[in-house]
Design a protein around this nucleic acid. Sequence first.
DNA 1: ATATAGATCTCGTCA
DNA 2: TGACGAGGTCTATAT
Lengths: 247, 247
Amino acid sequence: MELKVFSEKLVNALKSNQTCSFFCLCKINYSGRAEAELDEGERLIVIKSDNTLLVHQDLGSNPVNYMKADTKIDVLFVKGGILIQTHNQKYKDYLDIFVKDVFNFDSRKLEDGKKLVLVGTEKDMSDMIRDNPSIIFDDFRPLSREEHTRYGFIDVFGHDGEGNFVVVECKRYVAGLSAVQQLRRYVEKMVELRGLDIGSVKGVLAAPSITASAEVMLKDWGFDFVSVNPPRRLEKFNKNQKSLGDY
Amino acid sequence: MELKVFSEKLVNALKSNQTCSFFCLCKINYSGRAEAELDEGERLIVIKSDNTLLVHQDLGSNPVNYMKADTKIDVLFVKGGILIQTHNQKYKDYLDIFVKDVFNFDSRKLEDGKKLVLVGTEKDMSDMIRDNPSIIFDDFRPLSREEHTRYGFIDVFGHDGEGNFVVVECKRYVAGLSAVQQLRRYVEKMVELRGLDIGSVKGVLAAPSITASAEVMLKDWGFDFVSVNPPRRLEKFNKNQKSLGDY
DNA sequence: ATATAGATCTCGTCA
DNA sequence: TGACGAGGTCTATAT
């Protein structure tokens, strides 16, 4: 594609806040939170209506370079090509794309008011535990859930039949050392602020599984592990599989 | 675009491992590590040559739905549109895209052998400290850097003039509670495994700044904070700004 | 704005 | 392959 034509299309699309997508030959410089260089090669570039910019190579989930929303984007003619010069005020960073060749250009104002509905998060796990407290142990009595307390952000908080406090930390995947430390921090903070004996506050880590070293640390601190899976995993898919014709 | 034409183009592009980009009207179901639904709306869909699939709405850096590399992708005609049915064996997840309308389709085999060169990471910080140990304190003597030891992954390890061990944890950004806990874990592990007195191992947190609560925790544990900035921040940009004509 | 923690985190690296 | 930690993490939420 003629660079002049590309430039006009890009400028118009940016003006009207369309989302753009194009393949091009380019090299890239980034400066801000770090410094990065990417030598000449072919990439897919996406610019969204909120002025998010993504540069994708042909492998991997993540963009090789990007700028976050509200980036100022200028298009300049320079010797040998076009310079897309960008700057984000909030993050104080800069990305320059020197475009040598463009292979296509598409843009569109995307009409989309829908939001993703997601189930199976850590929050859903803590909901499930609140509604089914015996998952943790028989006489567990939850008092609150997902609360920013002065002890920290505790997933599920409650007490046992003997009046001891119980702090539950949920993880939706295998719990590691940092999860144990997180639990430890909440328990310690609670002991400290309430002037309790260490040992009078129970700590429970609820996750699908736990690493060996994390389990050692957990035991050292007198905490317990309970194997819990995030709710609804695969349920919906199984339903859909049975009714593909419903699409 | 005719859905039949789109289907042919997509299937051909997938066969020849091209990277694809198209705007479409669709609804989406995900099932696997979680469950997700996204009702009908217009999105940009990208499929890479490694069979990574990304669904982007017109806002934000992250895809609203995605599948990781090595996803199996099938294209089926169904009542009212086309179903892009995908499955990733490794992650045991499924993504179905029901496409009602397509507005464009582009694909290309991207020629790109270049890799991003990045400077200013935490690793660069620990390099800088090893080369300028007085940043930490006057008589700091680094022994190793970025080491996977049985004590954990310690950024910089060394000793002071009196033979005490010193563990340094680096953070590129504001250090929070978790950074203090990480340091605490390394120090405790070292004390335990070497049979040392607590207090004979110094802990230092090196970061641009530290949050108030993290600093309290740090002092409680007898550790020190040293303000260190990651190297080379903005240097390259300043250079570039002076020599834009060089492009 | 800053602080805190989750994420279908992703990605690299090492045992 | 699992474990562990960084990330230009990004994002949501609360203060």
